[in-house]
Structure formats: C-alpha cells, structure tokens
C-alpha cells in the first residue's frame, strides 16, 4: 500500500525540487537555443544536464545520474567547449534567419509537435505505477550490471565496437596525411627571397594595453590596420579586432564629459567648437 502510494504521488520535497529545477532546465534549454555565442550555449546546456542528472537521481537512477554528470557534463560538454575554442570562442552568431520561411516553419513544427506530444502524454492513461523501489532493492548499480551482462550483453558488446569505430572514424576524419615532406625553415626563407614578396619576418601585432592583444592588428603609418600582423588562424576565424576607432571614441567621450563639466566655461568661450572641428 505504501509503495503503491509512493508511486502515485511523490513526496512534497521532490515536487518542490521538480518545479524549481524543471524551470531551471527549461530556461537552460531555451538559452542553449537562443544564446548568440556558442560557448554560452554550451554552458547553459551543461546546466540543463546537471539538472537532469539531479532528476535521474530523484527517479532512482543513481548510476545514470552520476554518469550523466561525469560523462555528459564532464566529458562530452568539455569536448564541445574544446571544439568551440578551436572554432573561435569569441565568434558570435547572427540570429538573423537567411532561409525564407525557415523560422516560421520551424516554430510551427515545433509548437505542433510539442502540443501533440504533450497532448498524447496527457491522453495516455498512466495509472499503474510500480515505483523503482523494488527494482533497486539489490542496489541500483548491481541491478543494472546484472541486466547489462546478462540480457543486454550483446548490445553491450556491440556498443563497444561502436565506440571503437567512432574513435577510428574521428581520427580518420580529422587526420590529414602529409603527402610531401614538410619544408624546413631554410627552404621557406629561400622561397621567400626567391618570390621577393615579403623578405623580412612578418610584423608584430599591434599592442593595446588591455589584454595580450595578439588579435589586434598593427597600424600602418597611414593609420589603417595591417592584417599581416595577426596570426593566420585568427585571421581565418575573422577574429581580428580593430581598435583604431575605439581610442578615438574614448577621446570623444572624454571630451564630452569635460565639456559637460565645463559647460559654463564653454559659454564663455564660443570659439571652442571651431577648434574642435579643426582638430578633427
């Protein structure tokens, strides 16, 4: 009788936990979808996954809960972050839709699918709950192990093969065979001289006293930034930062603040505006 009741309704504590954490999970999921930067999405997803891990634990799946945290949030999400770093952590996606009607169709399908799914669950007569207590009686991990190594042993073995294949596949996909010998530094310099395009070493990046500034292009004598000064990888990612007008805007802001403070003084000196224009 008590187990039956426990199955039908959960404890108030769990209910409270559910409502709070479910909200967090949904918000996290939405943020995953709508954050502009991939790294933010990844962090939000990690949050959602931790919440899900808590839910697993609450549902009596202790092993899965731990695995969720260790494998998913620990390994897989870190893999994601690693790739995000590789691709460019600062790159922000434009959320403008380029395919005509895609967003509306996606929303329509999503809402329709969701409504159907929720309606389907609501319609289903889920009355007979058994509760996990009996299954977990011998310990959750032991129960799982007993199943995995008896009834699901073939699936388990095949999973092993799948993982090996995936590992090999990832290697094949990312590995590039060198078809010719790497050129030595001497050869490279000789080639540079022969081509006569850029004989001295590449120029150093610009320096801006806020961070290490390898992504800031050095300015040429006429004030334009030179892309040559930035590392090729950053160039490819489009991560060159142009700070040449930042300094000017800072200066402008400073001047404005000064002007506000010296408002009265400005009235007395009407020629100030003209000098400012001249300075521009």
């Amino acid at each position: 009788m008590t187990t039956q009741l426990a199955a039908y309704t959960t404890s108030t504590g769990e209910a409270f936990q559910f409502w709070v954490l479910a909200t967090v999970a949904v918000i996290g999921a939405l943020c995953t979808v709508f954050m502009k930067k991939a790294v933010h999405s990844a962090l939000c997803l990690a949050g959602t996954m931790i919440v899900l891990a808590v839910f697993y634990l609450a549902n009596g799946a202790y092993f899965l809960g731990i695995v969720q945290i260790v494998v998913y949030t620990g390994a897989i999400m870190m893999l994601f972050l690693f790739v995000v770093m590789l691709v460019g952590v600062t790159a922000a996606d434009s959320l403008r839709e380029t395919i005509k009607g895609q967003r509306w169709l996606a929303l329509l399908c999503g809402v329709g699918f969701g409504v159907l799914l929720l309606g389907g669950i609501a319609n289903a007569s889920l009355k007979d709950f058994d509760g996990i207590g009996k299954a977990n009686a011998g310990g959750n991990v032991e129960g799982l192990a007993a199943l995995i190594f008896t009834r699901y042993v073939f699936a388990f073995e095949i999973t092993g093969a799948l993982l090996i294949t995936a590992a090999v596949g990832a290697m094949v996909l990312t590995h590039r065979e060198r078809t010719e010998r790497a050129r030595t530094q001497r050869e490279l310099s000789e080639q540079r001289v022969r081509e006569g395009k850029h004989v001295p070493p590449l120029p150093a990046p610009g320096v801006y006293a806020r961070h290490n500034a390898v992504d800031i292009a050095g300015l040429l004598p006429d004030g334009t930034p030179s892309e040559l000064t930035v590392n090729k990888t950053l160039r490819d990612r489009g991560q060159i930062r142009d700070v040449s007008d930042e300094a000017l805007s800072d200066l402008k802001a400073l001047e404005q603040r000064a002007a506000e403070r010296l408002e009265r003084a400005e009235d007395e000196r009407p020629t100030h505006k003209r000098t400012e224009e001249a300075s521009k």
Binding site: V67, D130, N136, L147, F156
Partner: peptide, 30 residues
C-alpha cells in the same frame, strides 16, 4: 523505468548515452 518498476529503461538510457558519446566524437570531428 520508475513507473514500470524495472531497470530496462535505465539500461536503454545508458546505451543512449554511449551512442551519444560516439555520435559526438564523430560529429565534432566532422
């Protein structure tokens, strides 16, 4: 799994995780 009182659901979830891990590896390589 909780509703039915057996661990098969958790097993499936476990396998899903494994498959997801493999998928992530290949997908990220792609």
């Amino acid at each position: 799994s909780r509703m039915h009182g057996n661990l098969d659901g958790q097993i499936i979830a476990f396998f899903t995780m494994v498959v997801a891990a493999a998928e992530v590896v290949v997908g990220l390589a792609i």
